[in-house]
Lab assay of single mutants.
Amino acid sequence: MSIQHFRVALIPFFAAFCLPVFAHPETLVKVKDAEDQLGARVGYIELDLNSGKILESFRPEERFPMMSTFKVLLCGAVLSRVDAGQEQLGRRIHYSQNDLVEYSPVTEKHLTDGMTVRELCSAAITMSDNTAANLLLTTIGGPKELTAFLHNMGDHVTRLDRWEPELNEAIPNDERDTTMPAAMATTLRKLLTGELLTLASRQQLIDWMEADKVAGPLLRSALPAGWFIADKSGAGERGSRGIIAALGPDGKPSRIVVIYTTGSQATMDERNRQIAEIGASLIKHW
């Protein structure tokens, strides 16, 4: 067993022997301040990774656009098919120029040779490549099948209805392509620590998230040296922004954090800054 596999296998073990965790309302004060600064709703939840206990939450059962955070769930569904012998990570998928959609920095470079399922998941999570996500959605049967996968996990809230990039439209009061912070946090925890996926697939999923290259201005910008984070960000229309993450000190994750916002007129930089400040408060009061 590799060191990384050992780390993920012992996530519940280490967490069980940690000192009790206590909620700190100071972080919620910052979440509410972010709402004021952005002029928009902000949803927040913080779960203990081992027990699933909610440590703090704000608007945990209000719907927010998922945006690209759905790509972690998508690759979880792909990995479940791999575990069941219905898919192979090494299978190569070929596609054409007509398949390319807006923001496809990886797939646009491989029109000639195609990409493997493993490479597509890596591109979808680490670079948020939209064509990679659409190609992977095709392998599982489309958005409705991802929703069905989530329902089978016990998540009857999260739903995907459309493809990239239309799913980022974020129309107010439109339930399409949305989740709730509580539902997303619980589902992410199941994917990373539950028995739904094999140990190898859980490790692969967290490795992809740990290698995320496009979430630097968010929670990662607030992390002290030595902290662990595996995350996936999302951005959408109407001032929408979000991030889902597993993080913790001492090089291992111990909490799940989900943050979503929508309806702001603020710039992307300002949305990023507010999420980073929430992260800084979380870490300060850990």
Rank of each mutant, 00 (worst) to 15 (best):
F64I: 13
E56H: 02
K144R: 04
D174S: 03
E35S: 06
D269H: 01
G226K: 10
S281Q: 14
T179Y: 15
L191K: 12
Q86V: 10
I171G: 06
H285W: 02
T178H: 13
D99T: 13
R176Q: 09
A132T: 11
M268P: 06
W163V: 07
A133P: 03
R241V: 11
V42A: 01
R59Q: 04
P249Y: 15
L167K: 07
E87I: 15
K144H: 11
Q203Y: 04
L247S: 06
L137F: 14
L150A: 05
M180I: 00
H110S: 15
N173Q: 03
T179N: 15
S104P: 10
G239P: 04
E270C: 10
L137K: 10
F70V: 01
L199Y: 05
R273H: 13
G154D: 10
S104K: 03
P224M: 12
A245Q: 03
R63K: 03
V82F: 09
K53H: 01
A185C: 07
V258K: 12
E166S: 11
T186A: 06
V42E: 00
A170N: 05
S221H: 01
L150P: 03
L89D: 12
P172D: 09
R81M: 00
I259P: 07
L282W: 04
Q88S: 14
A185I: 03
E166A: 11
S68F: 09
H94Q: 12
K71Q: 04
L73Q: 14
L55C: 14
M209K: 04
F149R: 14
L47H: 02
A230D: 02
I140R: 13
A132N: 03
I140K: 06
A84E: 15
G242A: 10
P60A: 02
Q265C: 10
H110W: 15
S57Q: 13
N50Y: 08
W208R: 06
D207Q: 02
V82A: 13
A84W: 10
R59P: 07
S281T: 08
V117A: 08
V106H: 11
L47E: 11
V82H: 07
S51Q: 09
M153V: 14
G279S: 07
V78I: 00
F58A: 12
R189Y: 08
A77W: 09
W227F: 12
E87N: 14
R255C: 07
E26M: 10
R162F: 14
L150N: 10
R92K: 14
E277C: 13
L79D: 07
E61A: 13
R81T: 00
L282E: 02
E61I: 14
T178I: 14
N98Y: 00
R202T: 12
S57D: 12
G263Q: 06
Q265Y: 15
L28M: 04
E145C: 12
I244A: 09
A266F: 15
I54S: 01
L137N: 08
E62C: 15
V42H: 00
